[in-house]
């Protein structure tokens, strides 16, 4: 089988691919080969800020908080949009009022729905 110029281009690509893999994996492999391994109790601890770690890394937390945080993010982002609008509010005239009320209305619709569903209540 002879390689034409078209196949040769793909050969170059393949060689480059292999080189890039070797470039990334090589140092890791060398380090793995020559590194001294001295595991100890403190070294294997999961927390690495100097403070003694307590309990396990696998802790449970309430998944309900996720929805709560999401609603908070919606309201927080709403302020980012409303502030610039407030700066040029007078020059916008009647259209500004329409924009603002429809935007805030949509958001309060969503937050109101979440509220009705009981997301904001902790039990």
């Amino acid at each position: 089988m002879t390689l034409g110029p078209y196949e040769l281009n793909y050969l170059i690509l393949g060689v480059l691919f292999l080189m890039s893999v070797a470039f990334a994996v090589g140092p890791l492999l060398i380090a793995w080969l020559i590194t001294p391994r001295k595991p100890s109790k403190i070294k294997n601890e999961m927390y690495e800020c100097g403070v003694q770690s307590e309990t396990d890394a696998w802790v449970q937390f309430k998944v309900q908080y996720y929805v709560y945080a999401l609603v908070f993010v919606i309201v927080a982002i709403a302020t980012i949009f409303v502030y610039p609008l407030a700066v040029i509010y007078k020059s916008l005239g009647g259209a500004g009022l329409l924009f603002l009320t429809s935007f805030l209305g949509l958001i309060s619709l969503g937050v109101g729905y979440a509220w009705k569903k009981g997301v904001l209540e902790w039990s």
């Binding site: 001295k38 403190i42 601890e45 800020c49 100097g50 003694q52």
Partner: peptide, 11 residues
């Protein structure tokens, strides 16, 4: 904390 950090460094 300093000693613990030192212990956590790899050789």
């Amino acid at each position: 904390q300093v000693v613990r950090l030192y212990n956590q460094m790899p050789e």
